[in-house]
């Protein structure tokens, strides 16, 4: 699990493994996928796919209060694992309903609004994505606390 003080590194692409700096993220997206990394031991916490997160920078004025309190300079982070069937939430597209750009799981089309705690705005997902509080310390993007909310896909009751 991500821990307070962890830095974030890209989990895919040509720069996989490199630390994400706030300036790397354009306002309004697109998001990047990331792993938490312990800066002391240099261990990338990628032992479980439940640790993967999606990070996107938005206009701070667009964030609701709860989301803004977990954000750093408009940057927000959520679990990358869909709350429906645990597929990775990889798309950044115009919502099925309305004009906002949203996070979307391509497997079964659940959509989440990152401006308001990644609440479900479309599709079969039963709950929002878990949120990961962020901070900027010494110019670096870091984890400010544990996940808020439940990780993983839906379970039988």
């Amino acid at each position: 699990m991500p821990k307070r003080g962890d830095v974030l590194v890209l989990s895919e692409g040509e720069r996989e493994g490199q630390i994400i700096a706030p300036g790397d993220l354009p306002v309004g997206g697109p998001p990047v996928r990331a792993w938490p990394k312990d800066p002391k031991t240099s261990v990338v916490r990628n032992g479980s796919r439940l640790n993967e997160i999606v990070v996107v920078r938005l206009d701070p004025g667009d964030l609701d209060d709860a989301t803004r309190s977990r954000s750093a300079d408009g940057i927000v982070a959520y679990s990358a694992i869909c709350a429906h069937a645990a597929c990775p939430v990889t798309e950044w597209v115009k919502a099925a309903q309305g004009d906002k750009t949203v996070l979307k799981c391509p497997c079964h089309n659940s959509e989440y609004d990152p401006r308001s705690s990644a609440q479900v705005v479309f599709g079969p997902a039963p709950r929002s994505l878990a949120a990961l509080p962020l901070a900027i310390e010494g110019g670096s993007l870091t984890v400010a606390g544990a996940f808020v909310g439940k990780l993983g896909g839906a379970q039988l009751g």
């Binding site: 694992i81 645990a86 597929c87 497997c107 993983g152 379970q155 039988l156």
Partner: peptide
């Protein structure tokens, strides 16, 4: 979600249910 329900086929009364606890990180396409 890995569930099996056993029922009386005439009445619809339940005999038993099996509910598998699937792993939280299971990617179900």
């Amino acid at each position: 979600m890995g569930q099996v329900i056993a029922l009386n086929a005439k009445t619809g009364d339940e005999y038993w249910r099996y509910k598998r606890q699937l792993p939280a990180d299971l990617f179900q396409l």
